[in-house]
Design a protein around this nucleic acid. Structure first.
Length: 468
RNA sequence: GGCGGGGUAGCCAAGUGGUAAGGCCGGGCUCUGCAAAAGCCCUAUGCGUCGGUUCGAUUCCGACCCUCGCCUCCA
């Protein structure tokens, strides 16, 4: 099966081929967070889907160039800064910092660049693009000194969302701008400064103001990746109007097809409803970490369901992830013990077949991929139980597990066992050899009190870190 | 109202025109000084409902029910 992905534009799964004539480089732009708050795990579902996409493309030998923007100026960031009485940049910085911390905790590969909307270089580019759009008749300055994109000038507006604009139902969220616009669907490229914006404003040919949200992505994507990009990702809620607007602005500026492949992930749900800051039903990563869950466990939950399906977040699901990971950890540990006497790996049929990688080729079918992985776990555990797996085969499988983890990134934290713990285990082993069960049990309790669980396997004592 | 996802065992979930992967939970067994852990085994005659096509449908077609999302803040 060829590598293929679902394209939101055509609503079908299509074979993937990069724009790069060399067939090597893949350019990806992904919409990042608005830094007015800590991102919640629903946001991170999107970033983990994008991480899976990038890692699988790399597994298939592509070189991925990826940009993720940070929206650090909009209504909410401005409101937050005003309420706190601090400059905008000072308000957003802690949320930027926590975002990067969370990416690390979730083992999400950093993008090659994380441009910020307020970067003067990008503001200048946005102003430049808006000027071009006005000159070409695609945008106009309204009476309130804001600039709007004229959707009537771009006939294919609505193609991505498959919306017929004549049939749009008024949403009820009508703002006062409506009276300034030629068409209710026209969207702001430049928002004239008003009293709610405080000191947040930049000079422009149309007076002081700030950029609209959509133009930010068009400017930064083309600045950093060029006029045409391979893949643009985001949550389904970005399809309309955000990505629709990006297409219109960018293509009207460049005259080129902006994005070859649009990929969108479904929402993370909680209690059967979309997880959203506005709904107040969200969990942040730091909340979950504080409850004793690990970033790795949260990553498993978020990565294990197909990206185009809504995923209902539950603590039962997190507990299930913990158990599943322990099974994988134990498998890796067994393979590792067996492989310790082997210098080089031997091919195993399952590695050649690579059912895991082939499942991901089909629009990132992670469920089938994990199914294949757990099949391999069971089959090789059975072989190890029967003493039918050689150390060289174990080494080969361990290498394969390592390759799979260049995609999944679910390997256990490397744990260094402190010397005093090792000493206690040694004492206990001696006590057991002397059949001094009382002392053995006392030492086991002592180890547990220090956070380590001892398991007496037929190969001797094994230690694992206890979890809360 | 328009558009788009979903409805498969207690929970999550893959998949196929020929009779249902995998994970969690649960049960059994093995190992074991005890305990814990781990490994193995078992667990859906049925895939929202009702029709239709077919030798045969969970998979194709039609209708309907339920549910979630988008329709200019939103990953």
């Amino acid at each position: 099966m060829p590598l293929q992905f679902h394209n939101t534009l055509t609503r079908s799964v299509e074979p993937f081929a990069p724009l790069d004539p060399g067939g090597k480089t893949v350019k990806i732009y992904t919409c990042g967070p608005t830094v007015y708050n800590h991102a919640h795990i629903g946001n991170f579902r999107a970033y983990i889907f994008e991480d899976l996409l990038q890692r699988h493309l790399e597994y298939r030998g592509f070189h991925v160039e990826r940009v993720m923007n940070l929206t650090d100026v909009d209504d909410k960031t401005i409101r937050g800064a005003l309420e706190k009485g601090v400059p905008l940049a000072e308000f957003t910085q802690p949320f930027k910092d926590s975002f990067f911390e969370d990416l690390r905790a979730l083992r999400i590969k950093p993008a090659d660049s994380f441009p910020c909307a307020t970067d003067p270089v990008h503001i200048a580019r946005m102003i430049d693009m808006i000027g071009k759009l006005i000159a070409a008749g695609h945008a106009y300055e309204a009476e309130d000194k804001s600039v709007y994109f004229r959707i009537a000038s771009f006939p294919s507006y609505g193609q991505l969302a498959h919306l017929n604009l004549d049939e749009l139902r008024p949403s009820g969220r009508v703002s006062s701008d409506e009276y300034e616009k030629e068409n209710i669907g026209d969207f702001a490229l430049w928002k004239a400064h008003d009293e709610h914006d405080g000191h947040v404003a930049w000079d422009s040919p149309w007076g002081r103001g700030r950029p609209g949200w959509h133009i930010e992505c068009s400017a930064m994507a083309t600045a950093l990746l060029g006029d045409r990009i391979d893949i643009h990702c985001g949550g389904v809620d970005n399809i309309f109007p955000h990505h629709e607007a990006e297409i219109a602005q960018t293509e009207c500026c460049t005259g080129l097809k902006f994005v070859n492949l649009w990929m969108h992930c479904a929402h993370l749900m909680v209690d059967g409803r979309k997880m959203a800051k506005s709904a107040g039903n969200f969990h942040t990563l730091r909340d979950l970490l504080a409850k004793g869950w690990s970033g790795r466990e949260v990553r498993y939950v978020l990565i294990a369901a197909h990206y185009r399906l809504p995923l209902n977040f539950t603590f039962e699901g997190l507990a299930g992830a913990r158990s599943a990971l322990q099974r994988l950890d134990e498998w890796g540990r067994r393979l590792s013990d067996l492989a310790s006497t082997s210098a080089s790996g031997t091919p195993h049929p399952a590695i050649e077949e690579d059912a895991f990688g082939r499942a991901l080729d089909d629009d990132l079918n992670i469920s089938a991929a994990l199914g294949a992985l757990f099949d391999l776990v069971r089959d090789t555990n059975r072989a190890m139980d029967a003493g039918e797996l050689s150390p060289d085969q174990a080494r080969g499988l361990l290498d394969y597990w390592g390759r799979i983890n260049t995609i999944l990134a679910l390997e256990p934290e490397s744990e260094t066992i402190p010397g005093d713990i090792t000493a206690l285990v040694g004492e206990r082993t001696a006590a057991r050899a002397a059949r001094d069960w009382g002392r053995s049990d006392m030492l086991r309790d002592e180890l547990l009190a220090r956070g380590w669980i001892v398991k007496d396997t037929k190969d001797g004592a094994k230690l694992t870190r206890s979890v809360d």
